[in-house]
Amino acid sequence: MRPFQYTRAPSLAEASNMTAGKDTLAIAGGTNLLDLMKLQVETPDQLADINRLGFAEIEDTDNGGLRLGALATNTETAVHPRVRSDYPVLSRAILAGATQQLRNKATNGGNLCQRTRCFYFTNIDQPCNKREPGSGCGAIDGIAKLHAILGTSDQCIATYPGDMAVALSALGATVHISGDKGERSVPVRDFHCLPGDTPWIENVLEPGEIITGIVLPAPVGGTQIYRKVRERSSYAFALVSVAAIIELTDGKFSRADLAFGGLAHKPWHDPRVGECLLGQPPSDALFDKAADILLENARGFGENDFKIPLTRRTLHAVLSQATEDAA
């Protein structure tokens, strides 16, 4: 760990000012950032502690939705009565991630900003275009079992590791952001970026911008499932995960909001996958068609080729379960 300045940000405006410079990072729960600092993957000169700035509440919105404070912890969010009853996919996704101890400390805003667990990213003696632009990608041709099959580039095949954001993507949540130019909101589906030629840019936050909350739309009901496939049954990142909100009307899909984790540099949401299900009765052939659309441009890198059939099968499992539950 390099020496760094620690400052408790006195206000949101001051936190924005401080983090506008590239040498200052905001810290909330710190469950990911501190680990990366010890490894010198992150080497900020200053940390701006935003933990005392408020926005830790979970509140109803006027239109019946729910606003999750960016500084509410993952645990508080997962156990919140309205999250459990109206957005169970979110509660399940959060509880599928990390460990109880980490979730007690980790915040909602921080969770969105967590960084990839690519082995080459976290080892500063290995090449990584994300950590050190231009140094190359160690994972391509390296150990890449956990890596992406969708939206990759020749610069980076890392995955976004989180679970919570996958559920938020299925729910169509919105990220609320505050910065020196004022406030703005971004659909969570547009919050994270694909690596392209700039793998070090992982989300749309501009310097000085800080997440203040996440707004969930009014509840839509339906059967909500979060399925996380992993080698170890807890404390492991997803090989693939699926967040699904499914509703059947008269035996046909009337809602199919689907998002996927473990497949890409961002929670993967392809609207065509759900659309192809709408108005159709469930069938294996239909599920296959949805998987065909989802995986149309999937590409494996040897070690992670298995993710392509695994994703297809997991989608089958989730849709089968959802339609059985809904029937």
Binding site: R117, F119, G138, G142, I143, R232, S233
Partner: peptide, 22 residues
């Protein structure tokens, strides 16, 4: 790693010993 032989998954998050749930 197939190119330099270094041990890649070198912590308890990535080297999967069984956890309680297993």
């Amino acid at each position: 790693d197939p190119r330099d032989g270094h041990l890649v998954n070198c912590d308890l998050a990535e080297y999967h010993v069984p956890v309680h749930r297993d």
